[in-house]
Nucleic acid binder design. Structure first.
Lengths: 107, 107
DNA sequence: AATATACGCAACCTTTTGGTTTCTCAAAAT
DNA sequence: ATTTTGAGAAACCAAAAGGTTGCGTATATT
């Protein structure tokens, strides 16, 4: 069973859950109300998200509040870093090209 | 058949392919040499990546070079944006807290 | 004490995924 | 002209994903 962040965010429902609880912790029932599935299905998604440590639980009486581990989200950002370097380079190349063209014009 | 970027980058082999061809276009055979699978398996991954427009092909004789569509990668970045806002806010809150503590110390 | 609620867990089912093997076709090499 | 090489397409398969229903248990409510 592969369980990493990229796997976790592949599912659109899970991405929606992440967005939903990003600002405030919620219980499985409360979350399920936002979707067109059963609580159990949501519960499964929550388990997957928990297993890859994207969310954490906090028990309050018989209710369990799920909260986003925002720090973990940075791992995606970290992976993107290598490509960001490329698209910024592309931008710089364009920039240089424009500068060169300007230079030629001025000559 | 769901075919979006998040789905595409969920597979570790596909992420590796993306990284591999990020800097220079490669043929399926050349790509497959880097992995422990058959060319056909790689070919399937390439098809999925092509379908969600993360890569594009360029035919040269009987060889097909696959190249990363770096622009498409920005869509992931775009999704992350909402969370970046949160983790920067958290940082600011911490910053404010530290400032407050400093203020109290100074009093 | 009895009932209702919140939740996780397990069993089960269907569809999707990731892979392999085989086939075909077009371009290159001999 | 024949053979080799690069590559997509199709058929097939095992494993995983995503969902459902049913059950057990702990906490609240009455």
């Amino acid at each position: 069973m592969r369980r990493d962040i990229f796997q976790a965010i592949a599912d659109p429902t899970r991405r929606a859950i992440i967005t939903l609880i990003a600002l405030q912790a919620m219980t499985p029932n409360a979350i399920a109300e936002h979707f067109d599935t059963t609580r159990q299905a949501v519960s499964k998604h929550l388990r997957i998200l928990t297993e890859c440590e994207l969310i954490k639980q906090e028990q309050k009486g018989r209710e369990i509040y799920y909260q986003l581990e925002i720090e973990k989200m940075k791992e995606i950002d970290k992976w993107l870093e290598q490509f960001r370097a490329i698209w910024e380079t592309r931008f710089n190349q364009l920039d240089n090209l424009l500068t060169d063209l300007n230079g030629k014009k001025k000559k």
